[in-house]
Structure formats: structure tokens, C-alpha cells
Design a protein around this nucleic acid. Sequence first.
DNA 1: TTTGGATAGTTGCACAAACAACTATATGTC
DNA 2: GACATATAGTTGTTTGTGCAACTATCCAAA
Lengths: 146, 146
Amino acid sequence: MSNNHFKKGELYSFITGKASTAIARRLQKKFNAAGLNITIEQWSVLYHLWKEDGRSQQQLCNATFRDKPSITRLVDNLEKLNLVKRVASESDRRINLIYLTKQAQKLEEETMQIADDTLNEALKTVPPERIDVCKEVLQIVYDNLK
Amino acid sequence: MSNNHFKKGELYSFITGKASTAIARRLQKKFNAAGLNITIEQWSVLYHLWKEDGRSQQQLCNATFRDKPSITRLVDNLEKLNLVKRVASESDRRINLIYLTKQAQKLEEETMQIADDTLNEALKTVPPERIDVCKEVLQIVYDNLK
DNA sequence: TTTGGATAGTTGCACAAACAACTATATGTC
DNA sequence: GACATATAGTTGTTTGTGCAACTATCCAAA
């Protein structure tokens, strides 16, 4: 019978995700301080396009764990910022393939460095093996619920 | 020198908080399925009022890790739902003390049970000692950045 | 070949978050 | 007491999220 392990006082942070909220806020502040005019959510879309350019919006939904309207609007805003371009698929006209602009390609290195720094700040006092356990637990949580 | 421990592929989930997003969504669905007409964010405010009723909005900001405008609007919406009432402090007229209504008091048991169930689903396959490590790491992250 | 169901994407609406600018009240110092 | 400063809360704007309803396209079965 699983772990009736959580006392009331403990469940709150898990649900509200205070840690990831804190990380995201710090990262956003660093982006702003660097004069980078993008949101964390926009960055999370770019992140997956840097890994593989030309994904469809639906693929971005799966990758970013967002629903279709959210991606529609993130892509809208990224297009306004001239960071991506929608290109209709030739083989299936329902599909938009999303491509990075040159301007967006230039952002990869700097923003990844900032993200790296942010995580090092967040985790600087945590031994690597405990980080690994934490990552694994969060992955299991995600797999259990997704 | 800290842990240059994160390879690119690993930092994404930490930043985006996929696990806590998944938990929150599942909890929201369960609230909806139970006919409970409240959001997770509203619930998180009620949560702290159940622990101690009559807190000020500023205290709720600190407790929920939200800024003042966010709390103003959450309290607005909770008031519309007849779940809390703003009462001007006698000693300091800048302060609103927020009190639960009878209707909100009735929600505590049911919603806490649902939250408990949700976390048990999320963590059912995770050994307790690993959960503890994960909680500690997340707490440290929060303390490092808050 | 038509038709019915699935899939990709968009739009409208309500709610929430972050930031800046604002009002009102309190407090400490001269 | 007057003034500067700090604190509590509100409002406006932009951005993002979740849901439902919608359009367009594809595909498979009759």
C-alpha cells in the first residue's frame, strides 16, 4: 500500500513546485539582465528546436508538455520576435514545421550558458549523487502522471 | 568547484518543473471531477489559511511565494466564490486580514484527502528514502535561490 | 467516391504571473 | 508637527495556461 508517507506539512512544496519556480524566476532575471528579450517559456521552445530544427507544433507540444493552444501562442510570439518561422509541410498540409531564424541560432550558446550557471547556483551545495536521486524521482513522478 | 554536473540534456526538466506541473494538473483534474470549483492556486491560498486563519495578504505572499498583485487577485477570486473575507486590521489600516468562510472550512478535509491521493499516485513506485532525498534537494534549491 | 473519424492547428474565454506605477497608511527623525 | 521613507495593497499591461469549440486536412472503410 504505497507510501502513506506524506504528512500534510510536506506535500505543499511538491505540488506547488517552489523549487522549479525559483529556478525559472532566477533564469528569467538573468535573461533580462543580459538584455535577452525572451521569456522562459519561449526559451523552452527554442531549446527543443536547437536540438532538432523543423519540428511540428504537435511535436513541440509533446516535447514541452504543453497543449496545442499554448504552443500556437508561443510560436505566434516567437514569430513576432523573428526567432522562428512557420513553414507549411509539403506532405501534409495540416502541419506547420517550425524553423529557427539565424537570429535564434545565435541565442543558443549564450542562453545555454546562462541556464547552466543558474542550475549551478541552485545546486551548488548539493552533492552530485543526491542530484541524481532527485532527478530520478522527478522523472518517475512525471512518468506516473503524464 | 561546484558541480559542472549538468549536461545539456539534463537541465531542461529541472528548469521547467515538469514533475510539479504534472502533479498540479492531475490534482486540478481531481478537483474538477469531484465538482470542486476551485483552482490549484486558490487551493494553495486556502491551504495556508487552514493552517492559520486571518493572515494578511503580505503573509500570504510569503507563504505562497507569490507577489502582491497575484495575491490581490487570488483573494479577489476567492472572495467572489465566498470562500474568504477581507477584514481591515484594527491596529494597522493598511492591512487586510483574510478569513475563511464556513464554506471554505468545509473544503479542507476533502481537498487534503485528494491532494494526498494525488501525491501517492505520483510517488507510489518511489521508496520513501529516495523521496526524502528529493525533498531535501528541492528545499536546498529553493533556499539557494529565494 | 463518399463519408466518418482522427489529427493539426486556431480562436475565445477565464484564470494566473511578473512587472511597473499607483494610493493609502504607518513610522522614524528633525 | 512635518517630512521622508517604508510598507500594504490595488490596478494596468503583457504573457502564458487550460479547456472547449471550431476549421482544415488526412485517411480508411464501405
